[in-house]
């Protein structure tokens, strides 16, 4: 890998100061755990002259009870998230998703905020400078042509964070701090369907915490991903399901997906299955709407058709498993 480029490192101790420092230089980047950001810096994908390290900001490292729900600081480590008693008991999909990110060493310093703001990934993008240069770079960075879809002018790099869909099925919101002040938005609104620029964060804005409402009474939830290596890997496809069932009928169904589009997404049309018997036909129909809305492209070594099939199968399996408990 390439040498580290020169940059100035700042270590602010409040989020407001971090946002101010970030605004002082156009090329600046936030740095939390660094499991992905440092890799991208070393590959020349990011070339900041200023880096703002967030690990000295104490206020964003707590998980606190917030009304009926929880407020998770963006600096909470994934390893702490997946064993937190309230998360394991009330929000199992989040604990399962956090436990499935990379390997245990990555989780010991990788943060939830970093996993939510993870850059999109692609076979033609997450490579060394030398590899990308020999391929005339790509549309997402320095190049003219998207090697995934050479005819178009869109980037299809896939969002590959595991925790976002798990948070989405519980209706999570995120708190953002920027030079212009604070705002809170629903988590799905943090993303847009554009692999080149998939975060709706305003310039210099920082994600500081995640708000979770109380889970619906009697609801069951889970997350599962498909990956090449069981030990350390990004998802080829990931699926979170939350449902409430009552005597063979669903009274609520939420499904969210990751790694099959440039953004993590809530599956639309799941309300159609509420109040109807959950038989084989309904399970097949759930699988099919998931497959229709997943649009994986050739961004991994595994073929898109497989990822589309597997994400539907994951959704069907999780719904069946949760509804039959």
């Amino acid at each position: 890998m390439e040498n580290m480029p020169e940059f100035t490192l700042h270590r602010p101790d409040t989020a407001e100061e971090a946002a101010k420092l970030k605004a002082s230089d156009d090329s600046s980047r936030y740095l939390a755990g660094g499991t992905d950001m440092i890799v991208n810096v070393r590959r020349g994908i990011e070339a900041p002259e200023t880096m703002i390290d967030l690990t000295a900001i104490g206020e964003i490292t707590q998980i606190a009870v917030d009304g009926d729900g929880l407020r998770i600081g963006a600096g909470v480590k994934l390893a702490d998230l997946c064993v937190h008693a309230d998360i394991v008991a009330k929000y199992p999909a989040i604990a399962q998703a956090a436990a499935s990110v990379a390997g245990p060493t990555h989780r010991s310093y990788g943060t939830i905020g970093g996993n939510l703001c993870l850059d999109t990934r692609c076979l033609f993008y997450n490579q060394s400078q030398w590899w990308r240069e020999s391929n005339n770079f790509c549309l997402k960075h320095k190049g003219e042509v998207c090697h995934v879809a050479p005819g178009g002018k869109r980037c299809f790099a896939a969002f590959s964070g595991d925790v976002a869909p798990a948070l989405m099925v519980y209706g999570a919101e995120v708190d953002l701090v920027g030079p212009g002040g604070e705002r809170t938005i629903p988590l799905p609104d943090l993303y847009r369907n554009d692999g080149m620029d998939h975060l709706t964060l305003e310039k210099d804005e920082l994600l500081v915490s995640i708000r979770l409402p109380a889970p619906p009474a009697g609801s069951l939830s889970a997350y599962e991903k498909s990956r090449i290596r069981g030990s350390i890997d990004f998802p080829l496809a990931g699926c979170a399901v939350l449902l409430t069932s009552d005597g063979g009928q669903l009274s609520e169904l939420q499904i969210a997906l990751t790694a099959v589009n440039p953004f993590p997404q809530m599956v639309k049309g799941t309300d159609d299955f509420v109040g109807k018997p959950l038989d084989d036909e309904a399970l097949d129909a759930i699988r099919d709407i998931v497959r229709t809305q997943a649009k994986p492209m050739r961004t991994t070594t595994v073929r898109p058709w497989y990822r589309r099939r597997v994400v539907g199968a994951l959704a069907r399996k999780l719904v069946m498993r949760l509804a039959s408990v």
Binding site: L9, L31, G34, T35, I38, V39, A56, A79, T105, Y109
Partner: peptide
């Protein structure tokens, strides 16, 4: 680092 395994190739010394 403080008793927890961490990759020293992805950690800035100053942190």
């Amino acid at each position: 680092i403080d008793g927890k395994a961490q990759h020293s190739c992805l950690t800035l010394a100053a942190t």
